[in-house]
């Protein structure tokens, strides 16, 4: 290589290297997704073949698996439930975690550190030892077998997480801004609502997204508290109604996962930059 590379060539090479590095990651991450997608459109008899290439259709693609989903299960209701549950959980989380995070981060409360750590530690308690006592709580509230039960229970893991997140975030807001607002006649609360919150919007959004995703990762609580077919969220409804005895409805299972997972992934991507800002909260200053 005699001639020095031009900037363009350099850039091209750099891109090439980066892409080469990224390919394995993309393959690892995406292949199972691709596999789910193609399985969702396959005839069942196309699945049980060893002689032909599994990566593509050997029989014409079918929508049968989706028909099963929408006409023979309550899939439509599950989607609505999942979204409504997540929205409520996000709301409850915001109403509790945002003020708590602010108080812990900004108000120099006596014992703040210990309270913060204690709230945080509750995230450490595994769900498997909480679900039986919680089922009594749910029954006492009269919420058993309704998705409202999950609205009550899911904040047990979203609140600790998001409190921490918000705490970190509020620390990045310069104290001076708040003081200036207070000088301008806003009270403590006014300063919080008018100045600090707007600046912390990325953090708030991050919390919302997190509340959403965490709610969708649960299986055990949903299983234990919600049995009626039309009250389940997707992650519970799908494995409980598409695995029957010793028969798996593979195509429908995978279709169901994708129809819910992909929109959330897209949403996630939208907010990823803010999210990154959010978790870095209290750093770098």
């Amino acid at each position: 290589m005699a001639a020095p590379l031009t900037a363009r060539q350099k850039d091209f090479r750099r891109h090439l290297l980066i892409y080469a590095g990224l390919i394995p990651f993309v393959v690892i991450a995406v292949f199972p997704i691709y596999w789910m997608a193609i399985t969702a459109f396959k005839h069942e008899s196309d699945l049980y073949r060893m002689d032909s290439i599994p990566f593509w259709f050997n029989l014409p693609p079918t929508l049968k698996n989706f028909e099963i989903l929408f006409y023979q299960t309550n899939y439509g209701a599950w989607i609505v439930n999942t979204m409504t549950i997540s929205a409520w959980v996000a709301l409850i989380t915001l109403l509790t975690a945002v003020p708590a995070g602010y108080a812990l981060a900004r108000l120099r409360l006596p014992g703040a550190e210990n309270i913060g750590i204690s709230i945080f530690m509750t995230y450490l308690v595994p769900g498997i030892i909480l679900f039986l006592p919680l089922s009594r709580v749910v029954a006492t509230l009269g919420l058993q077998d309704s998705w409202w039960a999950l609205v009550v229970v899911y904040p047990t893991f979203t609140v600790p997480f998001c409190t921490w997140l918000m705490m970190g975030f509020f620390k990045t807001v310069p104290m001076e801004m708040e003081e200036a607002a207070r000088v301008d006649g806003c009270g403590q609360f006014g300063a919080l609502v008018r100045v600090v919150l707007p600046v912390s919007l990325p953090g708030v959004l991050t919390s919302v997204i997190f509340a959403f995703t965490l709610s969708m990762q649960d299986f055990l609580y949903g299983l234990a508290f919600v049995a009626p077919g039309d009250q389940k969220p997707v992650p519970v409804g799908v494995p409980t109604e598409l695995i029957r005895g010793d028969v798996f409805f593979w195509g429908s299972l995978m279709g169901a996962a994708l129809l819910v997972g992909l929109p959330v992934a897209i949403l996630y991507n939208f907010f990823l930059d803010r999210f990154i800002q959010g978790i870095t909260g209290g750093l770098g200053k």
């Binding site: 990224l22 990651f25 993309v26 991450a29 995406v30 199972p32 997704i33 596999w35 789910m36 399985t39 995703t213 969708m216 990762q217 299986f219 997707v234 992650p235 519970v236 799908v238 494995p239 695995i243 798996f248 593979w250 299972l253 995978m254 169901a256 996962a257 994708l258 819910v260 997972g261 992909l262 959330v264 992934a265 897209i266 996630y268 991507n269 990823l272």
Partner: peptide, 25 residues
């Protein structure tokens, strides 16, 4: 952005269902 979006998909799928996909794989 596209690549970043692709690699976060595993994290956004409900675990109880994506495990079943692995079971099949």
């Amino acid at each position: 952005k596209l690549i970043r979006g692709l690699v976060v998909i595993p994290f956004t799928l409900p675990i109880a269902i994506s495990v079943l996909s692995w079971k099949w794989m």
